[in-house]
Design a binder for these strands. Sequence first.
RNA 1: AACCCCGUGGUGUAAUGGUAGCACAACAGAUUUUGGUUCUGUUUGUCAUGGUUCGAAUCCAUGCGGGGUUGCCA
Length: 559
Amino acid sequence: MSVSPSTSKDFIREIIDEDLSSGKHDTTVTRFPPEPNGYLHIGHAKSICLNFSIADEYGGRCHLRFDDTNPVKEDAEYVDSIKEDINWLGFDWADHIYFASDYFEKLYEWAVYLIREGKAYVDDQDADEIRNGRGNLQQPGTESPYRGRSVEENLTIFEQMKSGDFGNGEKVLRAKIDMDHPNLNMRDPVIYRILHEDHHRTGDAWCIYPMYDFTHGQSDALEFITHSLCTLEFENHRPLYEWFIENLPVPSSPRQIEFSRLNLNYTVMSKRKLLQLVEENHVTGWDDPRMPTISGIRRRGYPAEAVRNFCKTIGITKFQSVNDIALLENSVREILNKKSSRFMAVLDPIKVVITNYPDGETEELESVINPEDPSLGVRKIPFGREIYIERDDFLEDPPKKFFRLSPGAEVRLRAAYWIKCEKVIKDDDGEIVELHCTYDPATKSGQNPPDGRKVKATIHWVSAPHALNAEIRLYDRLFGEEAPDKKGGSFLEHLNPESLKVLPNGKLETNLAGVFPGETVQFERLGYFCADKESSPDTLIFNRTVGLRDSWSKAKKKT
RNA sequence: AACCCCGUGGUGUAAUGGUAGCACAACAGAUUUUGGUUCUGUUUGUCAUGGUUCGAAUCCAUGCGGGGUUGCCA
C-alpha cells in the first residue's frame, strides 16, 4: 500500500492556511524582532527560519524590526552583527528593515489618545509602590491613588514628562485596565517610563520611552504584520497585546501566536549566561567556536544550510522540549559529507621512514576530492620516503580488533601503497619517535597484491618534506552536563575542561594551503575542519567543526 | 497553590474519530583504498482513571506531571 507523502504542517502554518482560505488575509506578513542588546544565538535561528520561511512559502514578506525601546541596554554595535548573522543564515529582508524607535512619535500620539479616552493615567508612585499595588499571584491589586486624575491633568503631566520636567522614575504612564484582573499584565501596566538616556538612533530627542507591551503590537499593526510569532513566555502578554489593538486606532489587527523556544542540551542559551561566559573569559569571545551563538557556529564551521535543516527538523510546537545536540551535529555532517573536499592531515604525527623506497625520490599520487561527487575530480599528492602518520594509528601492543599499524602488521596508506612495520625507534624515555617500514610497489593506489594478501585498514598520511605546519584546535561541547543550568550549583561548575585541546604540531597535505578562512573541509578519517578567521599562510589554524562518526572509539570504550 | 499553556519511544516530531509513522540516538549485519558514506534489520511510545463511540493519541470529565506569569527588561 502506498503512503501519501506527508503534507503535515505545524500549527502556525495551519492557522495561516485558515486565515488565507477564510479570506481574513490575502497575504502573509511576518517579522523577526530582535532587541539590539546582544548577539544572536541558535535559538534565534529557529525564529528567523520560521518567520522568513513562512514569508517565503506563502509569497509574503518578513520584516526585520529592531525592538529598540530601552536605550539603557541597546547599542548600534549589535544592529550590524544581527544583520550579518541573518544574512549568513541565508535570509533577506529586502528593504523591509524597521526600528521600533521609528514609531516613537506615533506611539506618543497613541498614548495621548488613550489618556483622552480615559484609558491611561500618570502615576506618581515609585516602583516599589507600584509593585505592592499590583498584588501578587494570589492577591488582587489595589488601585493607585492617582488613578482618578482628570484627562486634562494627565495630559498636562504627560506633556511635562516628555519635556523633561521630571527625573527618572518620578512618574510613569499606565494603561487603566483592571487591578483585579487574574492576569498580572492587565493590572494597569506601565506603558511609558522616564529615562534620561541617549538612544542609539533618536539621540536625545526623547526622555520618555514606551515599554515593550505598548510598542510591539502597535509596531506590528503599523507594518501590517498578519501573524506575530513569538515564544511562549509572551503568552500571558497576549491579552494586553490585544487590548491595545482593540483600544487604539491602529491600521491593522495582527495576531500574536506563541511557540516554544529552542533548547539544546549540553549548552546554555540565555543572554545573561552567554555574556557571563564571555566576560569571565571562559571562552575567547562571542564568536568562540564553542558558543551557541550564530557567530560561534559560523566560526566553528557549521554550514548555514545545516542550521536551516536542523531548524526544519525540530519543528514548531507549543510544548517545552530539549533538543539533542546530536541532531544538530547530524545535520552538519549530512551537509559537510556532501559538500566538503577531502584532504589528509596528521594531527599528532609520528615520522615513518619507508626503508625500501628510493632516497630522494618523490612521486605524485592522485586521490579523489569528494567520493560523494566524483565530478569534482582528483587532487595530486606527493609521496616519498619519509611521511607522517597519526600517533593513534600505531600501537605497539594492539588489542584484538585493532586493524591499524603495529609491529609486523601491514596497512594501506590512503591513495598510496601498503606498508609493513619492521622496526620501532624510541628515545631514552621509551617514547616512540620513528617507525621503519617497507612498502610493496605492487599495491599502488588501491591495487591489491597478486598473492592475495589482505589488509583490514587504510590510514592517512602526509609526506614529511612537503607537509605544512598547522595549529589544530579540537573543540568539544562546552559543558559536560546535559542541563548545565539545571543541574544545581552554578552552570559554570559544569564547564567541560576538555572543550578545547590545541594541537600545535599538525602536519597538512600541501593542497590545504589554498583553503580560505571560513572554509570547511574534511580531514580524511578524522572529521570536518574549518580554517579559522585567524589562519594565514604563515600560521595555519584549523578548528574542528565536528568529528566523523567513529565506531572504533565506541568499540574501544566498550572493552 | 490565582491565572494561562502543555503532556506520543532515550530525544525531537507526525497521525486532526479509522493500520501509532518519520528523523536522531542505540544495537546487529552488508558494502567500502575514510572503522566515514551508503544499505538492511532490531529494540523502545500515546501521563493515569473513567466516560462518549462500532472504533479514541485525537472528543468530554477528573486526577497527576511539566512550564510560564508577581520589571519603570524584551
